[in-house]
Design a protein around this nucleic acid. Structure first.
Lengths: 142, 142
DNA sequence: AGCTTAATGCAACTTGGTTACTTTTGCCTG
DNA sequence: CAGGCAAAAGTAACCAAGTTGCATTAAGCT
């Protein structure tokens, strides 16, 4: 639960102007324990927040490395706040993601690093994404 | 390049009826060296092939384990033919995928297995997906 | 305060995919 | 090799996610 102060600081640190929508979007994303789609973010924002502005906000957040897309097999894009400082070019988003098949949430498992693989010759990997699916802690049968 | 025979056999083996569209879709997918989106498949099919039928075909193929969705950060779903026999429940799709940032294609690296990770307590993984991004063999600068 | 540029808000549109319903066709059985 | 039934195709209309163009507003620098 970051203070408004902290949110503003994060924006300036990434060279972004202060606006109401941006602070709101950043707050929603950094308070969520799982990745959110555009539609989900929209519902968590104050009513009547403009959808187009939201998508543009997500785009600029992504471009400056404030948030990252989370891989998924579904047809909607989900976003999560970057936990450590990423830049537009290099996302140091080196942890695995976990998708719960019960609650459908995708969590960042910050403590679990993505293991390396050896690629065939002439393939050069720049980014790596690892997604596990199963049943999360909350949805486990007691 | 599987013969029509082989395609028909694959369909029956998975308990699917023989239809023109199904054979065509299966052929397109098994001949492609990279994962295809619904729209891309549509363009590779004979003209005037019904879009809805295509999506239904993809759905049933997926359900019976003939094809699998490939994870991605984009907002379109991409499919690839399963190389070995998968069932609806258990996809033995244990290889990493590679997305080329130049040609945008996603390849199955069948020879590269997904390394295991140790999860925090109470997380149970059922499926695992690993996506690398970078420049593929064909797009490497000479 | 005033200016410049970036961000917002609005309308209209595109793309990917789905639902409901009717018609056709695969394929099993007698 | 009918003939019938269920599954698949076809058609139309719809829905949701995301985008584009343009006019308006507001951030933040001097």
């Amino acid at each position: 639960m970051p203070s408004p102060d902290r949110l503003s600081q994060t924006l300036t640190r990434h060279g972004l102007r202060q606006t109401t929508v941006r602070r709101a979007v950043l707050q929603v994303l950094s308070e969520s324990s799982y990745a959110l789609s555009g539609g989900e973010i929209e519902q968590l924002l104050p009513p009547n927040t403009d959808r187009i502005t939201l998508y543009r906000t997500l785009k600029s957040f992504e471009e400056c490395g404030l948030i990252h897309r989370v891989i998924d097999t579904s047809d909607v894009v989900r976003y999560a706040a970057c936990s450590i400082e990423c830049s537009a070019k290099a996302h140091f988003d080196n942890h695995v993601h976990f998708k719960c098949t019960a609650c459908e949430h995708i969590y960042c498992l910050n403590q679990v690093a993505i293991p390396a693989v050896t690629l065939p010759a002439k393939f050069e990997a720049v980014t790596r994404d690892y997604l596990l699916a199963g049943v999360c802690r909350e949805c486990q049968p007691a």
